[in-house]
Design a protein around this nucleic acid. Sequence first.
DNA 1: AGCTAAACTTAGCAGTCATATA
DNA 2: TATATGACTGCTAAGTTTAGCT
Length: 770
Amino acid sequence: MTKVVKEESSSDEDIPLARHSSSSTKPQTIKKKLDTPVKANKRNLSTVKKQRTTEASDDDDIPLARRRSATAKEQPIKEESSDDDDVPLAKRKPVVTQTKSLKRATPVKAESAPTNKKPKKEVKVEEDVYRWWEQEMENGAGDNGLDDNGIKWTQLSHNGVLFPPEYVPHGIQMKYDGKSVKLTPEAEEVASFFAALLESDHGANPTFQKNFFEDFQKVLAKSPKNPKMTSFEKCDFRPMWQKFELDKERKKQMTKEEKLKIKEERIAVEQSFIYANVDGRKEKIGNFRIEPPGLFRGRGDHPKTGRLKLRVYPEQITLNLSKDSKIPPALPGHKWGKIVHDQQATWLATWKENINDTSKYVFLSANSSWKGQSDMKKFDKARELKGHVDRIRKNYTNDLKDKLTETRQRATAMYLIDRLALRAGNEKGDEEADTVGCCSLRYEHITLESPNTVHFDFLGKDSIRYENSVQVETQVFKNLRLFQKQVGPGNAIFDRLTTTGLNKHLNNYMPGLSAKVFRTYNASFTCQQQLDKLTSKTDTIHDRILSFNRANREVAVLCNHQRAASKSHGQQMMKIADKLRATKYQRMKLRKQLFALDKSIKKRRPNLAVDESDLEDDWIKEYDIQTIEKEREKAKVKFDKQNDRLKSEGKAPLPKSELQDKLKKVDELKAQLDKERKTGKVEVAATMNVEKLLAKIEKLDERINATKIQATDKEENKEISLGTSKMNYIDPRIIVAWCRTYEVPMEKVYSKTLVEKFRWAETIPDDWKF
DNA sequence: AGCTAAACTTAGCAGTCATATA
DNA sequence: TATATGACTGCTAAGTTTAGCT
């Protein structure tokens, strides 16, 4: 272990993070990411990741102490302001405030009908929003019958669920053993499911193929009209696949009107399913569409991937409604399985899927009051942990040395969950993909390197690979070594620990505390701390947003939220670099003109005397050549175009000499560029003066800066997914407060749906801190 | 105490939409 | 004007937690 000094280390150590090495530091430069994850591809591919190198050592020696001081520091600050945020929802008096915010984005343009330009934004009447967070809490204690007993509603009505249309056979035949075969509609549908995935990863996955084919054979056997198929290899789904490709193509070719019509029809069908009525309020439903039949697309190495997911009928569905509401119609000729009136539940409909026999639910959407309230509760709970975390850390640090193995395992796991933001890690069955979290880590998932480095390498949720090397406390290292030895290869490291047991223990510290709260807490804490550290009021708006993305990224790295880098990433980076050089080149020319006009300015404005970086002669030459080529091309194209037009108007074409003249001009330009390169001087246009040049240079500086930022951001982001942490882990109040402090519009950091989802967070005072 | 299942949150992928670019 | 890309959304799989049962 190397001890490496890091500038500003002390301010850094508060970070509870596993991997804060990746980004940060220099703004506006493309950082060489030597210490950044390098991944060939998303999952299961070998990756080289070196993390948490250096500065860790320092902080590992006394991590808790440091963190404690961090929390202690911040705590008092907010206690006051948060006052009302801490009041449990249960204590709030429900008041329906229907605020109608009429959003007129753009005035509708005069109805000049078939202009191809579509209206910029339709006038959107925002629905009545139940602003549950605007209630006053004059009720002292939990005297509000409705809340604390788990009752979620008194009145609930909705129109049920929307079923996918029945299958319409297309008649395109697949081949078996080289011959076209006729299938019953049911079999054709299943064959089509596979055909559609022919060129995807699923289609090439042997497990997927095997599971599909087994289920397909069963469907075939249901009717004697179907041929018998015994070998998947003899199946040729290509004709169907081709048909679907053609369909896609046709769909693309549809005119705007046709597309619009389809969209309108869809909306008309959805209409009655969009909202539920909850205690007199209109609330949006999230997923009222019943999942269509298809092939189960399990992630990673799922043993059941490819199995046939059956069509769902009303008979399998249970609806949750209040007794007084009318029961919506089921499909014609069908009946609902069951109607219940479960006031403790927030689901509107439920059914069992046939693959894993698990329940599916229809819930309200993310911006509904139920989801919003539970989201707020979640973040308040995470915030509450701040007040307990010191004690918890102290205790588990002590427990690391407990003589009871069970206790030591629990303490060690808590350390990992706290330090690395690992998931709890429930046990999984044979019928599921082999993935793990903290409690289910097995022998082979960690490698120990003396004196205290732990290398993690395992597949977590969604079979996303977690690869990380961390320096841990000596006692943690010792424990892990011992546990590993005790359990042996293939076995769970924490063999005496279950998630239930862990959570029970956690609950003793604080009601409602469970393993996942640590993830939320650490994510939000990190975000707050990084934002404070990275943003400055002197930054431009671009810089501020970059800082925001950095903070966001830090959290995403901590939580291991990944995405596949786009295939063209490298190319795109090169393109940006080129654009940057072109701008710099322009700037250089302006500077030269400036000096020609005013020699003294070099002295007065020494920063203007500095040459542009990485502008090499070879590059300039090449760039000039390309410029000339483009100009020639442009001249020709323009000439041809003009002639075409003249011809169609029955007029005489332009004389060839016209083109010659133009090309001559380009030649002159070439000569000028050549000369400029040779002499290093740039001719000054007659209309130019010092002021104009300075203004132009300033413009270019801005552009250069913006491009640099763009490049940095892109590079740092290429395989990290920011969305998941933004949506689920970062307390939106942190972001709201930051946006206000730094005068950044919320829309710059939240998409429209997220703005709506987190509306409740907008009521905080400006100085709110997590 | 351990197991199962219900209920709800979290997650990446895959389409769709919007916008920049050629 | 068409195409390519990236952003955003919808979808649904895959987690966590807790309650209830044996």
